[in-house]
């Protein structure tokens, strides 16, 4: 509903980028196959650049599996890469190749990133990785995520435009 709050606080289980103790925390609930999230991806990178160490960015998974059949696999792939310390590298590659998210594509990205591919394939099927994605979805749902991408800033749902200028202006005003 409107005015929703993030029901699950950011913890060390989350995928976090930037300054961990920054005063401003931006959480995205996203779907790797969603074109709007694809459009948000470079905007967020520019925002991170502009905000520098004033910003902590967190990505949580919200795959809409019925309309985006590859979204779940892509989410699991990014989390599996995370187990080898390359979550953000995989996250970036996926958003840069949104039309190529079949399993063999994901495996080829793992190869390109220099991951242990056998380990990566096993991790993609492992319970902790799948549970992480499902827990992200559930926490988003309970926090009022109503589509992707959805953003929370310092724990509050941000419902205004996430285009570069309005989002940056808002973050700078905090």
């Amino acid at each position: 509903m409107s005015g929703s709050l993030l029901t699950k606080k950011v913890t060390d289980k989350d995928q976090v980028q930037g300054n961990l103790s920054a005063a401003i925390e931006l959480v995205e609930y996203g779907d790797y196959q969603c074109p709007h999230c694809g459009r948000a991806y470079p905007i967020i990178q520019k925002i991170q650049e502009a905000m520098g160490d004033k910003l902590k960015f967190v990505f949580r998974n919200f795959p809409l599996t019925n309309i985006h059949p590859d979204a779940m696999n892509a989410a699991v792939a990014a989390e599996a890469a995370g187990l080898q310390g390359k979550f953000w590298e995989m996250h970036d590659v996926i958003f840069e190749h949104q039309n190529r998210l079949l399993e063999h594509h994901l495996i080829s990205y793992a190869e390109e990133l220099g991951l242990n591919v056998e380990q990566f394939k096993n991790d993609m099927l492992s319970e902790p990785v799948i549970t992480k994605v499902e827990d992200d979805f559930e926490s988003g749902m309970r926090s009022g995520v109503n589509g992707t991408p959805s953003f929370f800033i310092n724990g509050e749902k941000y419902s205004n435009s996430w285009d570069y200028e309005p989002l940056l202006a808002h973050l700078k005003s905090l």
Partner: peptide, 16 residues
């Protein structure tokens, strides 16, 4: 037109 509009979202949350 939005990704995961209301009915699309509920399609995902149906199991809950």
């Amino acid at each position: 037109p939005v990704c995961g509009d209301q009915m699309g979202l509920y399609n995902e949350t149906l199991r809950f």
